[in-house]
């Protein structure tokens, strides 16, 4: 059974065709890599899945539910979380608050309860706190809970973004270049972490430039070029695919 299914997605911005007939699936337990040269439309795919962009044609389904008309927070509530290529943390909040805010859709108490500090609100607040601390621990960020996001080192901010996405209790997580800007040691840690996330039963779709990371952990790879899917398959198949090689190294071959 497919969890996340894209069928013949096209996106057009004015005269620019950003995506053309893109179709692939992220299945239960999958770690899917989405690769392609710059401007291939990888982030656009993420924006379509999470409801930031509307498709011009085609359908995205999650567990059979069409996502087309849903606003981003509803899609998240269904269990699809994401991180950003250029880190988008809430810079004026602490690490813990960044994670806590991500549990908004999983909690209930209203404004009045919050202002009056009703017991139900206090209990809920405590529960959110516990879970957020767990998410931070999971990403080895426990000791930075009270740190302002803007004061954290780059590598830590990357991990915090993932922690925040995990705190939304997703079933599928979209990682946009999680290894960008990391040193080799941090990249190795990251691969390990992604493995652990997968072990939690969360499906992963990631965009990544670092081929070591992609080839090391992805079980399935989709290749985009100029908005068109040019290949799909296991890592070793992709590495040999002439179209992929051409897309990446095109000029040198000619």
């Amino acid at each position: 059974m497919a969890t996340l299914e894209l069928s013949e997605i096209s996106v057009r911005f004015g005269g620019l065709q950003a995506l053309t007939d893109v179709s692939f699936c992220v299945r239960e337990g999958d770690i899917v890599g989405l690769i392609g040269p710059n401007g291939a439309g990888k982030t656009t795919v993420f924006n379509v899945i999470t409801g930031v962009y509307q498709t011009s044609a085609g359908q995205v389904r999650y567990d059979g539910t069409p996502l087309r008309a849903l606003r981003p927070h509803k899609i998240l509530a269904l269990g699809v979380a994401r991180t950003f290529q250029n880190i988008r943390l809430f810079q004026n909040m602490t690490a813990l608050e960044n994670v806590m805010v991500a549990q908004h859709c999983r909690t209930r108490v209203g404004v009045l309860g919050a202002v009056l500090r009703l017991p139900s609100q206090k209990r809920e607040e405590e529960r959110i706190r516990q879970r957020s601390l767990e998410a931070l621990e999971f990403m080895d960020l426990g000791e930075f809970a009270g740190e302002l996001a803007s004061n954290m080192a780059y590598g830590l901010q990357r991990r915090l973004e993932i922690a925040r996405a995990l705190a939304t209790e997703p079933k599928t997580i979209l990682l946009d270049e999680p290894a960008a800007g990391l040193n080799p040691a941090e990249s190795r840690d990251l691969m390990h972490t992604i493995g652990r996330i997968s072990e939690l039963g969360i499906n992963i779709l990631m965009v990544e430039h670092d081929m070591k990371v992609v080839m090391g952990i992805c079980r399935h790879i989709v290749v985009l070029d100029h908005g068109v899917m040019i290949a799909e398959g296991k890592p070793e198949e992709i590495q040999r695919d002439p179209r992929v090689i051409e897309a990446y190294l095109g000029n040198e071959l000619n």
Binding site: A81, V101, R106
Partner: peptide, 17 residues
């Protein structure tokens, strides 16, 4: 506060902006 800082991102962490 999250919505004030970044509406898109807060929608993506599940906040109904």
């Amino acid at each position: 506060r999250a919505t004030a800082q970044d509406k898109t991102m807060s929608a993506l962490v599940g906040i109904n902006s």
